[in-house]
């Protein structure tokens, strides 16, 4: 039991990274845009989030730096980076109507480049390595609940021992669920992703919705990259640490069937699968096989949902298709 609790707790750390990536992409895809640039966006979020906190600390000095301000700045910087990246994607696919797959891949190349370039260039500029002080590091990974809650047997560790970002992601997932199912704007956004011509005919500004969803979604995904850098990677730029994380987030979107609430347990499950080999030994399953399980499971989900042809469990109907009103 305690091994299981420990596994869950550990899975949450990496799961949080995925959750941000996935939630952002869900938002984007709900508008009908398949942004395959998540990988690049998360790289950019990681680099700029770190830069935000690092330069803040450098300017005010380690002693004067506040963990809270650093968290806010890191989130803002990452969000902005992701938003700018997806704005480029949005402009090319929404306004200029280029192929979404190809543009997304281009964004992956571009964003990975920008992220690594920024991360490395900071190092070159600073000489040596770029790392946050322990003070901020603690702030980033400290838990927000008091000890007595954490000490409740079983659920204490499982529910209250995580860092701030997990709870932020949790709130975000709940908020997004509420947004999609209960709010007018959420309903309209879903309509845009399902059938832009219908939404358009109903007087919804599809372009605006697509842009906003893509840009905000990209910003949220980017926060995931930042969370990776400031939690698991130890507050220092990591050249290839984020490699594959964005794609895992894309897989998770499918696995969750485009539902934010599923993203909560889905990301923890994926996080668990990525570290399971360290904790649960099954002799006949080699380590690397654990790591491909998320993808295998996703493929199975994809196939089953297409076989069953359940109307409710399908990708947004216009996913990947650009909309042009006067198309004949």
């Amino acid at each position: 039991m305690s091994a299981l609790i420990a596994l869950v707790v550990a899975a949450v750390t990496f799961g949080t990274v995925l959750m941000f990536g996935t939630l952002g992409e869900i938002l984007t895809e709900k508008s009908g845009n398949l942004n395959l640039g998540v990988e690049g966006i998360m790289y950019m979020g990681g680099a700029f989030g770190l830069a935000g906190a690092f330069y803040y600390e450098k300017i005010v000095g380690e002693a004067a730096s506040s963990g809270f301000v650093a968290i806010i700045l890191a989130i803002l910087a990452a969000f902005l980076a992701g938003a700018v990246a997806s704005a480029i994607y949005g402009f090319i696919t929404i306004t200029l109507r280029a192929n979404q797959n190809v543009t997304g891949l281009a964004l992956t190349i571009f964003g990975t480049g920008i992220g690594q370039f920024t991360g490395e260039f900071m190092r070159v500029k600073e000489g040596g390595f770029v790392a946050l002080s322990n003070h901020l590091k603690d702030a980033f990974s400290s838990t927000i609940f008091p000890d007595f809650l954490k000490n409740i047997p079983v659920i204490g560790k499982m529910l209250f021992s995580h860092n701030f970002f997990f709870y932020l992601a949790l709130i975000l997932a709940l908020a997004m669920h509420f947004f999609f199912s209960r709010t007018k704007t959420g309903l309209y956004l879903r309509a845009v992703g399902e059938s832009p011509s219908t939404a358009d005919a109903a007087g919804i500004n599809t372009t605006k919705y697509k842009y906003l969803a893509t840009i905000i979604g990209g910003g949220i995904s980017a926060i995931g990259g930042m969370v990776y850098i400031v939690t698991t990677a130890g507050c220092v730029w990591n050249h290839s640490g984020l490699s594959g994380v964005g794609w895992l987030a894309v897989a998770l979107v499918i696995f969750c069937m485009w539902r934010p609430l599923n993203a909560i347990w889905g990301s923890v499950l994926f996080g668990a699968l990525m570290i399971m080999y360290l904790r649960v030994r099954i002799i006949f399953i080699p380590t690397e096989i654990y790591k491909i399980l998320p993808y295998v499971v996703t493929v199975i989900v994809l196939v089953i949902s297409s076989m069953r042809n359940n109307k409710e469990k399908q990708p947004p109907a216009s996913l990947g298709v650009n909309y042009f009103r006067e198309e004949r």
Partner: peptide, 25 residues
């Protein structure tokens, strides 16, 4: 329109209020 502009996975009510500005859901 001849080809109905309706979102298949929505309910009738959701389709009806689609795009309305001041409508509370």
């Amino acid at each position: 329109h001849q080809h109905y502009k309706l979102v298949d996975v929505f309910t009738a009510a959701q389709n009806i209020v689609l795009g309305l500005k001041d409508e509370k859901l």
